[in-house]
Design a binder for these strands. Structure first.
Lengths: 248, 248
DNA sequence: AACATCGTTATGTCTATACATAAGGACCTT
DNA sequence: AAGGTCCTTATGTATAGACATAACGATGTT
């Protein structure tokens, strides 16, 4: 990496700019180093952007960008007039990528297979009507699907689709393609609420995922809106031992 | 919000700038609107930054910032020379804030209480030595703690601390303050790996969380490093019915 | 002491301009 | 057809300079 050389007068010199090493990144790295391991512990008031620009020998806009991104990480607190302060307790946040099941399976090197287990279009049950804000007596498309990894059950999908908002779904054939992939192609930019919990295996999980009744199941519920209208609600049950992992 | 008025010549006029409405935000909102509901569906090649700057009547740097942030959302794909394209399938990502248990409990309006259940300093078991990269025969500080919400069990914490890396931990009194809060104050800027899973209630969960044996438990495992050295590993078991929720 | 006013200051944003850099495409060679 | 060279183009970054805006703190008023 580009070296940063401290000098007696407090100025810094950036040297050896290897490819990919932009000024704001070098500055950012150095500031992060000072915060996380160096002289700028929690609570420290940083020099002003102008001072830092002087010290690093760059424009204030460059310092501003470096600090803005560190702010987005949750490590510092920036306020007009008061200046930039290192947070006492950094705001911890984890980012999870939510992949398609297909991608999730194929990323492990396993072969992916999909199958539609069940399809019907009953009156929407009360809990679903409440969740998707459906009219009384509305019908909804109910799909149960299985996703396999190398032939073994991987995920059970229990999906409801709002036919009023998405009438095309009624005529679509979900035998070959999972509803998720179709939905993403049809309604690409939706709002999502997702939640994770541990549930006990019921009849469906016992039948399709080879769980024993009452076994712990990693379960995801997801509701999707588009332009204010609820489109679909899905429950995903994973095979035994499933984990979600992230770093931050 | 500030209105954007389309004109016959394709130019746009920004009007009615209410407070907080900056140019790049207005531009961003309008571009997002065109992508998510308007003419720029998946696969569309957007005009160049220069063209957009012309159309919106602002500088290219402003367009650049708006597009850069949309890129970070995972909605577009930007490439030099090729230009900016709307992703066929947006990259879905959820952000979870990882709060302190105390904050988590108090956010629900409940009163928080902490208690130390158990403290010892045995030889580190093999699985822990592997995880924290400890020397053979190393000892580790083992703490079991409970977190209560309005007097009811909320979370069981089973923590191991690397005494070699953090010798202060041995002398600290964890009777009043949870190890998490102490660690955050002591080692504020650490790297973390976190994972979620569904496990079956064991003896500890039955004893402290009132689960029945084998009940599903929402379980979190977290390992923390600082400057390359593993500091601590913790397992968190939640009371029945716990959920983690996010929107994106 | 409580409160309103106002100047100062550090960050927030915007602009015009410049140069850097990745990469598509045309052209030429083998 | 396959491969290499060079030109062109759109994004990526950096800059100086300017004005906007939130908010601390001092000053004056009730």
């Amino acid at each position: 990496m580009a070296d940063i050389c401290g000098r007696a007068d407090g100025r810094f010199v950036m040297a050896g700019d290897s490819p990919g090493r932009t000024t704001y990144r070098v500055v950012q790295t150095e500031i992060l180093r000072r915060i996380t391991g160096g002289p700028w512990g929690p609570g420290t008031l940083l020099p002003t952007e102008e001072d830092l620009a002087q010290q690093f020998g760059c424009a204030r806009a460059t310092i501003n960008r470096a600090l803005r991104e560190i702010d987005e990480l949750g490590l510092i607190d920036r306020r007009r007039k008061s200046g930039t302060r290192v947070r006492l307790a950094p705001v911890r946040q984890a980012r999870f990528e939510i992949p398609l099941v297909r991608a999730e399976v194929e990323a492990t090197g396993a072969a992916y297979r999909y199958s539609l287990v069940h399809r019907e279009m009953p009156d929407a049950p009360d809990w679903l009507r409440a969740r998707l804000n459906l009219a009384p007596g509305a019908v909804a498309l109910h799909l149960i699907c299985m996703h396999f990894a190398d032939g073994a059950p991987y995920q059970l999908e229990d999906r409801w689709i709002n036919i009023t908002a998405l009438p095309q779904a009624e005529d679509h054939d979900f035998d070959l393609q999972g509803p998720n992939e179709w939905l993403i192609a049809t309604v690409p930019f939706s709002e999502v609420e997702i939640s994770f919990e541990a549930t006990a295996a019921g009849v469906a999980e016992v039948t399709h995922l080879n769980h024993r009744s009452g076994d712990p199941v990693f379960h995801v519920k997801r509701t999707t809106w588009w332009q204010g209208a609820a489109i679909t609600h899905v429950g995903l049950s994973y095979r035994a031992g499933h984990r979600m992992t992230a770093r931050y």
